[in-house]
Design a protein around this nucleic acid. Structure first.
Lengths: 349, 349
DNA sequence: CCTGGCTACCCAATCGTTTGGGTAAAGGTA
DNA sequence: TACCTTTACCCAAACGATTGGGTAGCCAGG
């Protein structure tokens, strides 16, 4: 009577078959095959009776049994640095949606960007027999990816890319370029970059996109105007402090490759008596929902986070189907707000 | 040679048994039983050989097969309104940790606080044969909970409570009280509350805790000084607008039951030319990492989000073990910052 | 009448583990 | 020596679904 599984007594194929006086295999074919197979398996009338009873009894196939037999779990593993990072959480929402549409369920785990944890979590996922992995915390120098490749584990990268592996990312280089164009166009000639973690392609690409374009426009950027930092507010604050100390004359604009770092930087500027948007322009990246809500609304590059998540699922699906896949880079757009809206008069040409 | 499961050819109990010339059941007992059973099952020497080989071959038991046999999946389902809400994401981190320690893996799904989605996601979880559910999006008037109870689905609530069901929450009433004491102590006598969604216990309890204490202190709060709102910045902004229009004289302090709503309110105050912390005090709730980083750092009630997640897992474990459980309410503390630090001189007694 | 081809099913093995019930051999006791 | 315990294993039946291979009965064509 009592059953330890959540939901109590569950109905099996055999139950349905017994009740209708037919064989379980017939029921299986009717319920879980394309209509082509189902057609050959039973008469239209029987098929209808089976489907009706299944609905009435609330039959739902046991994924463990199915998985055991078919060797597929319909489970996707997702690894992110931390889900409390708004960016990754939003991408995950996209993943969840797209995965559900394809009949997959998803696991998420946090790796905190720690290589040991990355490895541990990956193994946990594989032990759970996921069909494939979406890796949202790839490091540029990762040996783990090579290893997974060698073990023929199906996976795709998300958010961060690593050359040689399929990935769904924002076109971060373009994003950086947009910011360079914007700041240059507003008359800035002395800028600095809060560049993020050097192991993350997001940071590297955004920085490179910015710097390369800046140089192409005829600008120059000194060594110590590019400061690598953590992605959080504290990291941004520290980086800004460094810039304010090291750069002389003080830059008129700051590009932070991440909104949180930008917010930290704004805090630092404020405590130096500088007004963001007036004395120093600031631009962030990702356009998280906070950017527009800040006292001085933050200009930010909007990356299509939800779509990146969805795209990652589609790519992984292709990998699982044995198709060849191309990495996808989704286009960002720049949202200019008060933090960088002003043209620098003294420098305007 | 090729194997559709991630990780390629996997080692089974039978493989190990064959290689050692013993029976799979013996291997199973050695590897997956308490040392008491294992002792009776094989000689110490054999046990050691088995364990060594298992390690060497990288054996990991197939959870589908295990689940099929034991009727337990070691999977926990977690349902939250949205993972892109920092509060829930942080709680989930606690869940993930605690669950891993107990050998469980966790699924998360977003319900967007929509009753249909809640029901759908719940069914999806049950179809996956989770052993139990952690429900982070309970509505006070939910029929779903009654139904799950009737179906004897093991579950606990997290973050929001509903009388009659076990839950792990912050002591929200206390949180509200702390804010009342603080504002009253700073001389405020005319306050308003941005109360959140009336279907969430967090909103209701924080508001009630505040209001009841306020009255107990001898204060009074008019009807239209309590405004229900969404939990996000837009909701907070609108609520603040309402308050500024409807309340005369203008309140000297605002308590928002959620940091994001508080941030929205701060925005609204600013656009009315009011300085937060000077003209109007603002206090939020949850002490999300942003609170302290805002230009005017936000006072906020810190709730132990990570621990709430961990506690939820422990409670669910107890439910699964058939033990009786008591709801847990974790203590919050108030972090006073610039947004509400000033004493109101004109009103100080 | 025989053959061939449907239609509408059934049969049984299989996936990897777990677990209740053996049992043969060794050792101890009366 | 007969009998009882251990020890150290083996055996086989599940769990629920899938799937390659039947097959009985019917109809049509030659």
């Amino acid at each position: 009577m009592d059953d330890s599984t959540a939901g109590g007594r569950t109905v099996t194929l055999k139950d349905l078959a017994n009740e209708l006086g037919i064989h379980p295999s017939t029921v299986s074919r009717i319920l879980h095959s394309g209509s082509d197979v189902a057609r050959g398996a039973a008469s239209v009338a029987t098929a209808q009776r089976v489907r009706d009873l299944a609905r009435k009894r609330g039959y739902s196939p046991d994924p463990q049994a199915t998985g055991l037999r078919t060797r597929r779990s319909n489970l996707l593993g997702v690894i992110v640095p931390r889900l409390s990072d708004l960016v990754l959480a939003t991408m995950y929402e996209g993943i969840e949606e797209a995965a559900a549409e394809l009949g997959y369920s998803t696991f998420v785990m946090n790796s905190r960007d720690d290589p040991d944890e990355q490895r541990r979590k990956t193994e946990t996922m594989l032990a759970r027999r996921v069909d494939g992995l979406i890796i949202g915390d790839a490091h540029l120098d990762s040996g783990l990816l090579r290893e997974l490749s060698a073990r023929r584990v199906p996976f795709v990268l998300m958010n961060r890319r690593v050359p040689g592996y399929p990935s769904a990312t924002c076109d971060d280089v373009l994003g950086g370029r947009l910011v360079a164009d914007h700041l240059w166009g507003n008359g800035h000639r002395n800028v600095a970059v809060i560049a993020g973690e050097p192991y993350a392609s997001t940071a590297v690409d955004r920085t490179a996109g910015f710097v390369d374009r800046w140089l192409a426009l005829g600008g120059s950027i000194s060594q110590n105007a590019v400061v690598w930092s953590r992605f959080d507010t504290a990291g941004g604050r520290e980086a800004a402090e460094t810039i304010l100390t090291d750069c002389n004359p003080r830059p008129t604009a700051l590009f932070a490759v991440n909104d949180f770092a930008a917010i930290g930087a704004m805090g630092s500027l404020r405590s130096h008596g500088l007004t963001v948007g007036h004395d120093v322009a600031v631009v962030g990246f990702n356009d998280t929902s906070l950017a527009s809500e800040l006292p001085i609304p933050l200009s930010s590059v909007r990356s299509p986070m939800l779509d990146i998540g969805r795209t990652a699922v589609q790519l992984l699906k292709q990998v699982l189907d044995g198709e060849r896949v191309e990495s996808m880079m989704l286009k960002p757009i720049l949202c200019v707000r008060e933090s960088s809206a002003l043209v620098v008069p003294s420098l305007a040409l």
